[in-house]
Simulated assay, not measured.
Amino acid sequence: MPRRTHLPPELPPRFSVADAVRLGVSPSRLSRRDIRRPFHGVRATDGVPGASLLDACLDYAPRLAPWQFFSHETALSLIGAPTPEWPYHPAVHVSAHRPSREPRTAGVTGHRLQIRDPALLILPSGLPVEHPVRAWRQTGTLWGLHDLIAAADFLVSDRGRRPIASIADLTGEIESMGDVRGGILRAALAHVRGGVRSPRETSLRLLLVGAGLPEPHINWTLLDHRGLPAAELDLAYPRWCVAPEYDGRVHAENPTQFARDADRWDLIRGLGWDHVRILNHHMRDDGRAAVRKVRDALMKAGWRPGAAPRVPLSFD
């Protein structure tokens, strides 16, 4: 058995083959089984590879040229934006502006973008990513309408901090660089709303509106009999006192939180509202059960079909 030689301490857990060779590491040492080869020209000594997109990007980072950066859906995912649901997995997209070259290697989708002033962000992980507004437009070539709306909702909502972008920013990017796929981005912007707390809210809202129900208010503050804030409703129909809410939990993992939520549901009902709890199984089969539950609650409260125009939410 060959004797294992230690790698130079200057090498980080992930490193390029070129850097290792410059430090005197032999090609044969870099082919040993204690070293991972996540991408061509990259080696890693941190054991089993991670399964997340962030792990893949960190693995690839030693190979990034100074003019290259993560873009498209990769950039959106790395900043925490919602992505299409499983089994979809965002790919590793790396771009460069002309005349520089994009990467061409297995496991990475390279893009050579037209000349523009860079607008990169450097994440806490040290990864350079495309500005989210630009990344959202780029992702218009990859995702469906609902997923683009959910990502834009994320970008324009505060979520306890200043929004990443505004609808005007997204509109300006389209006007500057053009729409894609026959206008899917402008179609998405027509349904983007600020203040959204989660992609589940977006999914339920789009489902209800697409089924011809009125558009609900987002994060409505419910007042008690004294006029004081009592609860924040994810989605609300104040005219009919109906509050749909998407609860995606399979079971009560946190009993304390579940008990707190149950008390909140009682409070909402005690103030005269119909709290319509939508669970995961209600969203199956194109969400027919969820639509039926909310429609029944609205009709019980006096709403009638035809009171709101049907808004198309499909895109070809």
Results as ranks from 00 to 15, higher is better:
Met1Glu: 14
Met1Lys: 13
Pro2Ser: 05
Arg3Met: 12
Thr5Glu: 14
His6Cys: 14
Leu7Thr: 09
Pro9Asn: 05
Pro9Thr: 10
Pro9Tyr: 06
Pro12Glu: 07
Pro12Gln: 09
Arg14Tyr: 08
Ala18Trp: 11
Ala18Ile: 07
Leu23Thr: 14
Ser28Leu: 07
Arg33Tyr: 06
Asp34His: 05
Ile35Gly: 04
Arg36Met: 09
Arg37Met: 06
Phe39Gln: 04
Phe39Tyr: 15
Phe39Pro: 05
Ala44Trp: 10
Gly47Met: 06
Gly47Arg: 10
Gly47Trp: 07
Gly50Ile: 04
Ala51Thr: 15
Ser52Tyr: 11
Ala56Trp: 09
Asp59Arg: 06
Tyr60Phe: 07
Ala61Lys: 07
Pro62Ile: 00
Pro62Trp: 00
Arg63Ala: 10
Arg63Cys: 02
Ala65Met: 11
Trp67Tyr: 10
Gln68Tyr: 02
Gln68Cys: 01
Phe69Ala: 00
Phe69Cys: 00
Phe70Tyr: 15
His72Lys: 14
Glu73Lys: 13
Glu73Gly: 10
Leu76Ala: 03
Ser77Met: 07
Ile79Asp: 09
Ile79Thr: 11
Gly80Ala: 03
Ala81Ile: 12
Glu85Gly: 10
Pro87Asn: 07
His89Asp: 13
Val94Gly: 02
Ser95Thr: 03
Ala96Arg: 03
Arg98Leu: 12
Pro99Glu: 08
Arg101Gly: 10
Pro103Asp: 06
Thr105Lys: 08
Thr109Val: 13
Thr109Asp: 12
Arg116Phe: 02
Pro118Thr: 01
Ala119Cys: 10
Ala119Val: 07
Leu123Val: 02
Leu123Arg: 04
Pro124Arg: 12
Ser125Ile: 09
Pro128Ser: 04
Val129Glu: 08
His131Glu: 09
Arg137Lys: 12
Thr141Leu: 13
Leu142Ser: 15
Trp143Cys: 15
Leu145Val: 03
Ala151Met: 09
Ala152Tyr: 07
Phe154Tyr: 14
Val156Thr: 02
Gly160Lys: 11
Asp169Gly: 01
Ile174Ala: 05
Gly178Asn: 10
Gly178Val: 03
Gly178Asp: 07
Gly178Arg: 14
Val180Ser: 11
Ile184Met: 12
Arg186His: 11
Arg186Asp: 02
Val192His: 05
Gly194Thr: 14
Ser198Phe: 04
Ser198Gln: 07
Arg200Phe: 12
Thr202Tyr: 05
Ser203Arg: 15
Leu204Ser: 02
Leu206Cys: 03
Gly210Ile: 01
Ala211Met: 05
Gly212His: 11
Pro214Asp: 00
Asn219Cys: 02
Asn219Phe: 02
Trp220Ser: 02
Leu222Ile: 02
Arg226Leu: 11
Pro229Phe: 00
Pro229Met: 00
Leu233Tyr: 02
Asp234Lys: 08
Tyr237Thr: 01
Pro238Phe: 00
Arg239Val: 10
Cys241Ile: 04
Val242Ser: 01
Pro244Cys: 01
Pro244Met: 01
Pro244Ile: 01
Tyr246Lys: 06
Tyr246Ile: 01
Thr256Ile: 13
Gln257Ile: 09
Arg260His: 15
Asp261Met: 05
Trp265Ile: 06
Asp266Cys: 01
Ile268Asp: 01
Gly270Glu: 05
Leu271Lys: 07
Trp273Gly: 01
Ile278Ser: 00
Ile278Met: 00
Ile278Arg: 04
Leu279Asp: 04
Asn280Ser: 08
His281Tyr: 09
Arg284Trp: 11
Val291Ala: 01
Val291Tyr: 00
Arg295Ser: 08
Lys300Ile: 04
Ala301Arg: 15
Gly302Gln: 12
Pro305Lys: 08
Pro309Met: 07
Arg310His: 15
Val311His: 03
Phe315Thr: 07
